Simulated scan of single mutants.
Amino acid sequence: MTKDILLWDQTVFKEQEYFELDFLPENLLHREAQMRSLKFSVSPALRGSTPLNACCRGAPGTGKTSAVLKVFSELENATQKVVPVYINCQLDSTRYAIFAQIFKKLFGYPPPSSGISFKKLFSQIAKHLVEKKRVLIVALDDFNYLMASKEADEVLYSLLRMHEVQPGAKAGAIAILSDLTLDMARDLTPQVQSVFLPEEILFPQYSLEEIKDILKYRIKYGFMQGVISEELVDRVARYTAETGDLRVGINMLKRAGLNAERRASRTISEEDVERAYEGSRYVHLNYTIRSLKKEEKALLKCIVESGKDEMMSGELYDRFREKTGLGYTSFYEMVNRLEGLKLVSLNNTGKGVRGQSRLVSLMYDPKEVGKRIDV
């Protein structure tokens, strides 16, 4: 019996980092095609030429950021002549803040804290690239934040027309987007569109079998042998597929392992997995709500404030129009996007003028949604 009890210095984990959400695995399974496209886009930089711009588009938790960071890691290991800079636009959403991060990557220290003008900051970056014969590639993650803050045009224009100010400067951009409806042609100015022209790289949601493959890879290197049964792996995969977000499954495995350790057990039980899901299921909600536009958050808030489990789309539209002043076309597109992000479910009632009235319901506890919208 004592052999089933973990001592204070024992663990079910072999390498717990495999279950961290920011961990970059050696092999990025089921994203080979996307990785090839990214490498094709950046390959001119390895020859000292300007890289192709790219747009990585897909729902939250589909491997966009991991794929870009993996390619950036390989670039840094291959040469010092290419400078890949990753920017989280949730944290840095102004042109100055983004170029300050680029400056820090190039020079190894931030620009003076007293502040220098953007013109001077920009000039120092451009001169460095030309003098050192280096090529700059900037990944703008959560690019929709730049669109929302009206900074996208200025950021891209400054980056991609750098050679006009400093002849010989070479730079490219990779936009990472969770918003599948954002229309670059509509929302960027013609001047920026003419220089951006990105390669579109789509990241579809993982299938159930792909999710299983990826979770098993993490389990193989992250857990001790025999810690979790095949049956429970299948359950974790199914829960993950329901949210469409791989991060949910990875976080579930970590929590389930910790739950087993709390019981001083060498194996994960069904109860450990169920308890893990109660916390991990909100990983998708956290990331997805952060990626929404304010009008989409307003739409969710209309459902939360109604106090109902589900609403007829007509009633919801009336509330939404009153709150935002937007028309039915915008409302219809947003409802479909929220369904695609697995935040709401839609069911046709067969009633209504065209027999297509829909019931809209939240896929999460309204209180949990409300808390995250108001942050």
Rank of each mutant, 00 (worst) to 15 (best):
Val353Asn: 07
Gly350Phe: 04
Glu333Trp: 04
Gly340Trp: 01
Asn348Ile: 13
Arg337Phe: 13
Met334Lys: 08
Leu343Thr: 02
Lys342Met: 14
Glu333Ile: 02
Arg337Leu: 15
Met334Phe: 10
Met334Asp: 00
Arg358Phe: 00
Lys351Pro: 05
Tyr332Arg: 10
Gly350Leu: 05
Arg358Val: 08
Ser345Gly: 08
Val335Phe: 01
Asn336Cys: 09
Tyr328Gln: 07
Arg354Phe: 14
Gly340Leu: 01
Ser345Glu: 14
Tyr328Met: 04
Gly325Cys: 14
Tyr328Ser: 03
Gly327Met: 07
Arg337Ile: 12
Glu339Tyr: 01
Gly340Val: 02
Tyr332Gln: 01
Leu326Met: 15
Arg358His: 01
Leu338Asn: 06
Val353Glu: 15
Leu326Gln: 12
Leu341Gln: 06
Lys342Phe: 11
Val344Asp: 01
Thr349Asp: 07
Asn348Thr: 15
Gly352His: 06
Thr324Phe: 04
Gln356His: 12
Val344Met: 09
Met334Gly: 07
Gly350Cys: 10
Leu343Trp: 04
Gly355Ala: 06
Ser357Gln: 13
Asn347His: 13
Gly355Gln: 07
Ser345Phe: 06
Leu346Gly: 11
Phe331Thr: 03
Leu341Ala: 04
Asn348Pro: 11
Val335Asp: 06
Arg358Ile: 04
Leu346Asn: 07
Ser330Pro: 00
Thr349Gln: 10
Val344Ala: 00
Asn336Lys: 15
Glu339Thr: 03
Val353Thr: 14
Leu346Ile: 15
Arg354Ile: 10
Met334His: 10
Thr349Ile: 06
Gly352Tyr: 00
Thr324Trp: 05
Gln356Val: 13
Asn348Lys: 15
Gly355Asp: 04
Leu338Arg: 03
Glu333Thr: 09
Phe331Tyr: 07
Val335Thr: 13
Gly325Met: 12
Ser330Ala: 09
Ser357Arg: 08
Tyr328Val: 07
Ser357Tyr: 09
Glu339Phe: 03
Gly327Pro: 08
Gly325Trp: 07
Ser330Met: 02
Thr329Tyr: 02
Val335Pro: 03
Lys342Asp: 05
Gln356Gly: 10
Asn347Asp: 13
Asn336Glu: 15
Tyr328Leu: 00
Thr349Phe: 08
Gly327Ala: 14
Gln356Trp: 05
Ser330Phe: 02
Phe331Ser: 00
Lys351Phe: 14
Glu339Met: 01
Leu346Ser: 10
Gly352Val: 07
Thr324Ala: 05
Tyr328Arg: 02
Thr324His: 12
Thr329Lys: 11
Thr329Gln: 11
Leu346Ala: 08
Ser357Val: 10
Lys351Val: 08
Val344Pro: 01
Gly352Arg: 04
Val344Gln: 00
Ser345Tyr: 05
Ser330Asn: 04
Gly350Gln: 05
Glu333Ala: 08
Gly325Ser: 13
Tyr332Ala: 02
Leu343Phe: 08
Gly340Ala: 01
Leu346Trp: 00
Tyr332Met: 08
Thr349Asn: 09
Met334Ile: 11
Leu341Ile: 10
Glu339His: 03
Phe331Ala: 03
Lys351Cys: 11
Gly352Leu: 09
Leu326Ala: 07
Tyr328Phe: 12
Lys351Met: 15
Gly352Cys: 01
Tyr332Cys: 03
Thr324Pro: 03
Ser357Leu: 13
Gly327Phe: 05
Lys342His: 14
Met334Val: 00
Gly340Tyr: 00
Thr324Leu: 05
Leu341Phe: 01
Val353Lys: 15
Tyr332Phe: 11
Tyr328Cys: 01
Glu333Asn: 13
Gly355Met: 07
Val344Phe: 09
Gln356Glu: 14
Glu339Trp: 06
Gly340Ser: 08
Leu326Thr: 09
Leu343Cys: 00
